[in-house]
């Protein structure tokens, strides 16, 4: 049975001046799944993300998205194909309001973005759609609040709303729960589950409870290499993984 693979890497490798951050990684992400990338600090998870979204250029290897080789593409073009990422540090436009944050994302498909002679009032036609997106992540009350003034968890929600404005096929979330309190974690986890209904999600996450609750497949990275892959059950019983995480040495 041929699996429906949306994103695949073959021999993905990234070297930084003598240091191999990602070594020969082969990932296969099934369409419609929530796939988690976990591993100890410095395992190369974020580097992997940066390679997949072309914020970094791989040293070797290939990346295929929707059957298309995107290895040599520019970051902005990858985003245009519907493979959209978030960042570890919350990526909002801090001095724009929540509405404006989402509208910036909507603006791209509208076109005419080099129109420097036109009033920005032409963008008001996007406000309704932007409001709907804010509403969708529970942020309608924050419409006129600048992002910098929003609580952390809300900023992450805003980031997701902005990402969703592009209507991406696949979302890459880099530590969506980092630095969040319990309440926020549940809200954002619900949100991820909901947006993943008709999309594919690849996320890097440290919170193992979140990972076990949300993900269909988990890939464990250590020192830039894939250590194990499978569902949560398989992974948590894997002796190598236990050692990597807990430092339990075989006697």
């Amino acid at each position: 049975m041929a699996e429906d693979i949306i994103l695949e890497t073959r021999g993905l490798t990234k070297e930084f001046a003598g240091f191999v951050a990602v070594r020969d990684v082969n990932l296969r992400i099934r369409r419609g799944s929530i796939h988690a990338l976990i591993g100890p600090n410095g395992a190369g998870k974020t580097t992997c993300f940066n390679l997949l979204t072309k914020f970094l250029q791989p040293t070797r290897g290939e990346i295929c998205y929707e059957g298309r080789d995107i290895t040599a593409m520019a970051a902005a073009d990858v985003a245009r194909l519907g493979l959209v990422r978030s960042f570890q540090i919350s990526a909002v436009f801090p001095h724009l309001t929540a509405l404006e944050n989402v509208r910036v994302a909507l603006q791209r498909k509208r076109g005419g973005n080099f129109d420097f002679w036109r009033s920005k009032n032409v963008l008001n036609s996007l406000n309704e759609r932007a409001m709907a997106l804010l509403d969708d992540v529970g942020l309608s009350a924050f419409e006129t609040t600048t992002a910098v003034e929003m609580p952390y968890g809300r900023k992450r929600a805003l980031e997701i709303a902005t990402t969703l404005a592009l209507d991406p096929q696949m979302l890459l979330l880099d530590e969506p729960m980092a630095g969040m309190g319990h309440e926020d974690i549940e809200r954002v986890a619900d949100l991820i589950r909901r947006v993943a209904k008709n999309r594919t999600v690849l996320m890097v996450e440290h919170n193992l409870k979140v990972v076990s609750d949300l993900s269909d497949t988990i890939t464990v990275l250590t020192r830039g290499q894939v250590l194990a892959e499978g569902d949560y059950e398989t992974i948590s019983n894997n002796a190598d993984v236990q050692q990597a995480y807990l430092g339990v040495a075989d006697a």
Binding site: F55, V84, S86, A91, F93, A105, T162
Partner: peptide
Amino acid sequence: ENEPRAISLGY
């Protein structure tokens, strides 16, 4: 405000 984010939105 945030260039990497703007790139990730496809600009």
